[in-house]
Write a protein that binds this DNA or RNA. Structure first.
Lengths: 151, 151
DNA sequence: CTTAAATACGCTAAAATTAGGCGTATTTCA
DNA sequence: TGAAATACGCCTAATTTTAGCGTATTTAAG
C-alpha cells in the first residue's frame, strides 16, 4: 500500500527540475535523464504523458525541441498528476472497473473501502505540486545544494 | 500508488466480521474464509499476524480455539494495522531501508517525498479502525443487508 | 492416548504488476 | 538530407504479490 512507482518519481523529478528553469526555457527528456541518471525511455514517457494527457507540459517538436511547464503548479494537485501517470485511481479495482471480484456479494467492506478511498482522494486533491515540490521555503535562486528536510 | 493488497482486505474483513460478534466470542480463520470465500491460508495468516505482531487479537489454541478482538478498535489506527500486515511503511524504500537506490546523490525529490510520506502517515494515523469499519452510523444490530455508501 | 481441529510458520510456485528497452514514425532545425 | 527531438506500440525481464503445501504445536473430546 502507498508505494510510489518509478514513473511518478521521474515525473516529480522532471517537474521539480523544470520548475527551477527560466520561464520559456525548454527542457529535453535527455537532459532530465542525464541529470538524474534515470532511464531515458521511462523518463521521456512520463514527460510525454504530462504533455499529452494533461496540459501540465507543452511539447515542442524537432531539433531544439523540448518541454515547458504551462500550468501553474499551484493549481495542479498530486491527484491530478497521479491520474495522468497511472490512469484512474482506486484503492481497489472493484471501485471503478466493472470488477470481476470473485468475492463480491459476500464482501463486507465495500462501504469502508469506498469511504477510505474518498478520503484519500480528497487528501491528494488538496495537495498541490507547487506545495509539494517547491515547499514552504522560497526558492533558493541558486540551483545547487539541495537541502534535505527530514532524512 | 495507493492500492490495497489482499492481505489488508482480509484483515479488514475479519476485523469487521469479528467486531459484530458478542464480546468474548471466538472466531476461527476457517469461519472467516468460509464467510467471505477468501483463501484459507492467507486469511489465517493475517489473523495470526494481528495476534502475534500486535495485540489487536488474542489467539486461543487447540480445538474450539479461535481469535478474539482484544484492543479497542477506536484506539487502533489504519496506520497501525498496515504496519502489522506489511511491516514498516514508506512511499519509497530509501526512506527507511538502507537504500541501494541507484540514483541517490542526484535525486532532487528526497525532501518532497519525505514530506509527503510524513503527511500520509499522519493521515493514516488519524483514522481509527472503528471509524473506518463501524462508521458514523450506529451498528444496525442485524447482520444482514450491508448498505454501500457511494457506489 | 489417540484423533481431530485449531493456531503458527517456513518454503515454494504461480500469477500479476512494474520497469526497462527496442524499433519506428513524425517533426523540425541546420 | 541528416541529426535531434517528441510520440508510441510492443516485447521481455525483474520484482512483487498471491496462493498453496507441509509440518509442528496446542488443546478438547472420545
Amino acid at each position: 500500500m502507498n508505494k510510489i512507482n518509478r514513473k511518478l518519481e521521474y515525473a516529480l523529478m522532471a517537474l521539480k527540475y523544470m520548475s527551477q528553469k527560466m520561464p520559456g526555457e525548454l527542457t529535453t527528456a535527455k537532459e532530465v535523464s542525464d541529470a538524474f541518471h534515470t532511464p531515458f525511455d521511462a523518463t521521456a514517457r512520463v514527460m510525454q504523458q504530462m504533455a499529452q494527457k494533461s496540459g501540465i507540459l507543452r511539447a515542442e517538436y524537432g531539433a531544439n525541441g523540448g518541454y515547458q511547464i504551462t500550468k501553474d503548479l499551484a493549481k495542479v494537485s498530486i491527484h491530478d498528476l497521479v491520474e495522468v501517470i497511472e490512469g484512474p485511481t482506486a484503492l481497489v479495482k472493484c471501485l471503478h472497473k466493472e470488477a470481476p471480484c470473485e468475492i463480491q456479494g459476500t464482501c463486507n467492506i465495500v462501504s469502508p473501502i469506498t469511504d477510505l478511498n474518498h478520503r484519500l482522494t480528497e487528501f491528494y486533491k488538496s495537495l498541490s505540486l507547487k506545495e509539494l515540490l517547491v515547499g514552504r521555503v522560497a526558492m533558493p535562486a541558486k540551483k545547487s545544494t539541495e537541502v534535505v528536510a527530514h532524512g
